[in-house]
């Protein structure tokens, strides 16, 4: 599903964020991505989201070389990738429902379908009763769950999460992780960037460790 072949990413500033990284994650796997800040986690996720292209090497998602995507195709590619952001990226000028509905509105689904899927996603994260409130009034954990609902509402084949448990207490973190596991069990490939070691160890999942732009361990 995700295949990196000798990927190197050097920024214009000369900083080498990733050096010669190669790995492969199969469809339906759930993998942790860990490492200190600045180790290249964000760059790796950005490459998968096609926010950046590698300086050298290939990034292939579902056998599609991302560097070959034209600018016009990027939005359509991104619709297959659900992303949970560290800062959740919710919009506070609209309801929870509309926040979660955004990806579906973008891909032009009918109101009926949007309603069904958004409620299913909100139900899944346990916030169906909050659909009409503004996300600004929710707690951090709830906001993060709204972010997850938005990431999965389009039923993506690939789910990325960047520090999804960043500001959450262990109990909430555990809840969110089991949400991700639920998605994995229905065949979604899940990649979670996190530096929460306790959490990672408690999960018994494959872990990729980055250090100074190099993949030092994948177990």
């Amino acid at each position: 599903m995700i295949k990196f072949e000798q990927v190197t990413k050097r920024y214009d500033t000369g900083q080498e964020a990733l050096s010669n990284v190669s790995f492969e994650i199969d469809r339906g796997q759930m993998v942790f991505l860990t490492g200190h800040s600045g180790a290249g986690k964000s760059t790796l996720l950005k490459l998968i989201m096609r926010m950046e292209i590698p300086t050298s090497g290939r990034v292939q998602i579902a056998d599609q070389n991302l560097a070959q995507l034209s600018k016009k195709d990027i939005p359509f590619y991104r619709r297959h990738v659900g992303v949970v952001f560290q800062n959740h990226q919710l919009l506070f000028d609209r309801s929870v429902f509309e926040n979660v509905a955004l990806p579906m509105r973008i891909s032009g689904h009918s109101d009926l379908e949007v309603g069904k899927r958004v409620r299913a996603a909100l139900d899944k994260v346990g916030l169906l009763h909050k659909e009409k409130v503004n996300p600004i009034s929710l707690s951090t954990g709830e906001q993060q769950r709204i972010g997850i609902a938005r990431a999965v509402v389009n039923k993506p084949a690939l789910l990325l999460a960047d520090e999804p448990t960043g500001n959450l207490d262990p109990e909430l973190s555990q809840e969110i992780m089991s949400l991700f596991q639920d998605f994995q069990q229905v065949g979604v490939t899940v990649l979670i960037a996190s530096h929460d070691h306790e959490l990672i160890q408690s999960m018994a999942l494959p872990v990729m460790t980055l250090a100074e732009g190099q993949l030092v361990r994948f177990s």
Binding site: M49, P75, F76, Y77, R78, R79, V83, L102, P103, I106
Partner: peptide
């Protein structure tokens, strides 16, 4: 809003 739309695949 534009950033979020771009991230979730808005053309």
């Amino acid at each position: 809003e534009i950033i979020v739309i771009k991230l979730v695949g808005g053309t």
